[in-house]
Write a protein that binds this DNA or RNA. Sequence first.
RNA 1: GCUGCUGUAGCUCAGUGGUAGAGCACGUCCUUGGUAAGGACGGGGCCGUGGGUUCAAUCCCCACCAGCAGCUCCA
Length: 735
Amino acid sequence: MVRIVLPDGKVLERPEGVAVIDVLRDIGPRLARDAVAARVNDELVDLSTRLSQPEVRLSAVMLDSPDGLFVARHSCAHVMAEASCSLWPQTKLVYGPPVEDGFYYDIDLDHSLTPEDFPAIEARMAEIVKEDRPFTRYEMPRGAAMAKLLAEGNEYKVDNAERATGDVLSFYVTGTRDSGCFEDLCRGPHVPSTGRVGAFKVVQVAGAYHHGDASKKMLQRVYGTAWPTRKDLDAHLKRLEEARKRDHRRLGQELGLFTIDPLVGSGLVLWKPRGAVMRHALECLMREELLRRGYQPVYTPHIGRLDLYRTSGHFPYYRDAQFPPLYETDRARILNELWIATYERADGQSLGARELQLLDELRSADRGLYDQLMGAGASAGAGERLAQGPDGREHNLRLIRQLLQHSDGFLLRPMNCPHHIRIFAADARSYRDLPVRLAEFGTVYRYEQSGEISGMTRVRGFTQDDAHIFCTSEQLQQEIADCVDLTKHVLKLLALDDFRVRVGLRDDSDKYVGSRENWAKAEAAVRDAVRHSGMPYTEERGEAAFYGPKIDFVVKDCIGREWQLGTVQCDYNLPERFDLRYTGADNREHRPVMVHRAPFGSLERFCGILIEHFAGAFPVWLSPVQAVVCTVSERSAEYGRGVFELCRQAGLRVELDDSPERIGAKIRAATLAKVPYILVIGEQEAAGRQVNVRTREGAQLGSCSVPEFLVACAQEISSRAVSTARGPVESPKPA
RNA sequence: GCUGCUGUAGCUCAGUGGUAGAGCACGUCCUUGGUAAGGACGGGGCCGUGGGUUCAAUCCCCACCAGCAGCUCCA
């Protein structure tokens, strides 16, 4: 017998081998009819599953529950796969899991699918759904199953089977077993029949690498969405459409905030006046906070010598993500390329072909330098010869760097830290000076892959609200905690409360610098700080910076893509690479620790996210235009111009619309421009020396005097009152 | 970077193997109008760039550039 414990605590006893569906039927016919799957103990299973353990917990899974949708979407992926195989018999199926809001199926197909194919796929799916064939599971011993898959000749399924665990592999037939119906290697579970997958739609197709490996073949990934009912599907499609309306690329265009011009360059943001206003407001906010928290502003240039980045490790670590170096001279270019070729040569190998070629180039470009390098000239000592042997790598790297002292290349800076480090190093530092906190809105340049560039969120030139803290290891804990606090503070101020915290740690790859001990200390410090902050967080291996672990604040944009905003990073390694020191209380030299941190992250990305967060309807303190004076007719225009001037003198960002349009059109224009306050000025207002206040939400707040309005605005602005597009909008309350 | 799609007026988009259209925006004029669109007229286009096919290319083919979606990457 099997003891079956139901969610309400009731216990049923049934013979061993009883099917879940039969148990549900005994509980209630409607339950049995509506369930799409079941949870047995903690496992999701088919309704046809037979119970064999002596005691189990059992609950029915309904289509409209998260579990039910997960199962139905997976089943829907099978239906889509069957449709594809039916339309294009050469389709090779790869992998088709449920995902948030839907599912996808990766396929290998010579015909490249376009949205024009979707109606045919959907039509075929609808037929399969209408046939309402059962999902029938059958199992085979691993050996037999592998033989079957090999015979079928789909190398992807063979690969999937090899990766699957267990002695038994399962298949699902949409129909009865051996009926010749579509079947697929699959772990399951599935809904009882194809009629139960809900309302679906094929939404897009795009490329995807097999196993996410860029060196592997590119497959076609067909995305679908599925919901319990047609109504739910429509609501989802509607939500997507609404989300697209708040896309910062669209709103940035519509509201005139920024533009990106191919003539200037891909991924380079041009801030138009209105966008610049909101960025400036954010910068002011941050400056106030930094001064309050003991930071010191600095300014540094946007480029630096290559040798700076050799010291830091940025060059050549991230060379393919950097704009190519600027070279003063051809000999600097050749020497640099020689340095890179030498650097990339594995230890213990002799000079490579590239090195020899560059040496040839150097000989014809600059014989003197060549002789110096090769030791043939009279001035060169034997020790300066370019070492040919297997152990010459380190020697040659040093030698080339030495020769580059005369004329080097420059790099558009990919990060600000090396410049700030050199400011720290410029003075003798005592422990009494620490922590030193150097802050700068520092613009950096990274050569992002062309396919990655997107609006303001992924660009090639951006400004970080950056700062570097140099402190003792005793101070480290508090400094990290303060940075986390600052980041939380600004996110809260902007009502950006939908973020997650990610602690990025190193993995075993070779992209990290520094010793294990340094990393262990840094990771402990970061983990400790975030734990003390009380925020939920996830630890992710392989997400660290190359010099240290970090705490990232990650938000989603309006179409669900995740972006890193604020970051706090702990670094024992760059102080070592730059040989930073301070004098301790013991009058001995000590190594400081660094914290890299940027609460906004990049102003470009942050503003992009803010645009979407507020759907362009910024709080008054951030609004590019805070009020528009709209005159009703020429008769009130002069008074209107006076009101405009008064507002402007009071420091309000105000515009005047005294055009010959009708008042309705002016209000419409101001509303669409999402200006928070519209001041309607007619003869009545002129007679009473008042303004009539209307909000972009359409509320008419009545009339008040100009000073009253200005005081209310000033209060709203100085308090940095925030209302999101979702929530209610606070307004001044004119009399 | 990879796969696919797209590129026509400032913006959103029609369109055709015989050198182009709409709406919005913009300009001028008329209208003096009270809380989301008053009317008339007008200016504006190397049809992304470079090659090719063709008597003829915005349209067909190729390459490049740029944008979009996804994948991969992201200090």
